[in-house]
Amino acid sequence: MDQHQGRCDLHTHSQASDGMQPPADNVKLAKQRGLAAVALTDHDTVAGVAEAKQAGKEYGIDVIAGVEISTRAGGKDIHVLGYYVNTEDELFLQRLRGLREAREERNHLIIGKLQQLGLDISWQEVLDGLGRPLAPDESIGRPHMADVLVKKGYATDMRDAFNRYLAEGKPGFVSVPRVTPKDACEWIRAAGGAAVIAHPGLYNDDELVRRIITESLPDGIEVFHSDHGPEEERRYAEMAKAYNLIVTGGSDYHGERQGVVFHGDLGSKTVPFDVLERLQAAAHSKR
């Protein structure tokens, strides 16, 4: 198969944030699934990109340097994906560091809320659940806390932990001040990358998504995602066309916890290779 005719999963997470596997394992799995390319898009960090890139050379697969930035708009947490970012841009790394500090503050507040609910959970248990020391520039997220809740019997699985305690509107949810989607798009562009609105269907507010597009001027929108059904795919493909945005997609793979793959299995949602060429062209035009 000509690599440039292959498929690409543009949304995966590793141990550098809240995924279960080392970055190299994501790349190896992408190769096993017959993909031509994979993007590593960890939350508020690019700490795993160098390892993923090295694995890409080993397995003969394209690895895209990515990131997923946490933002806030319209009273909701909104995620913005960045592709082809310069992972050595000092200003960009400094900005991501600030986001991770806000994330850590939020994490401690979540633990406090869970304890107030009578749940026996501590921050040390969350760290111990990693099974390894937390490396510099890695970030911890809600899936790590969900993992402990399941192990201690407070939830049946990851999704149940979110539905009971950790999802927006649930008793353990905490929101801290975050940057706007517009900020994130500008940061990504300043770091030489292309900006994409992640999983718009999860926000349940298409009017807000349109407003974000108008204000933030992203390069693309994630039409294909593990939590999007056919109707969402149709709707966001139309939105992409209306706003002249690149149509992207990916599994949002986090690995397997308690036998359940969260959100979707690597390679289960993909886009053609020419999407990479469009993203790269958009990224280069910002440099």
Rank of each mutant, 00 (worst) to 15 (best):
A155N: 14
F173M: 07
G98H: 11
V179S: 01
L130V: 13
D265C: 13
Y236W: 05
I197W: 03
A155I: 05
H108C: 10
H108R: 14
N163A: 14
Q116F: 00
D227W: 07
V223I: 14
L10N: 09
E58L: 14
E231F: 10
G229N: 11
K57F: 00
D157K: 11
A50S: 14
A39R: 04
V223E: 01
D44F: 04
A65F: 08
F173K: 08
M145G: 01
L217S: 08
G118D: 07
V27S: 12
K269G: 12
N244E: 14
Y203H: 05
L93T: 13
K241M: 05
S268T: 15
G259A: 05
T87L: 03
S14E: 08
V38G: 10
T45N: 12
V85P: 08
I78C: 12
L130G: 13
P171D: 11
N163C: 06
G75R: 06
V209G: 05
Y84I: 06
S70P: 04
N204E: 15
P143V: 09
G34I: 04
P181S: 13
V85T: 07
H108P: 05
V223T: 01
H13Q: 01
E238K: 15
V261L: 13
R178I: 05
I221P: 04
G201W: 11
A195D: 03
G201E: 06
Q116H: 11
P218R: 10
A30Y: 15
E90D: 00
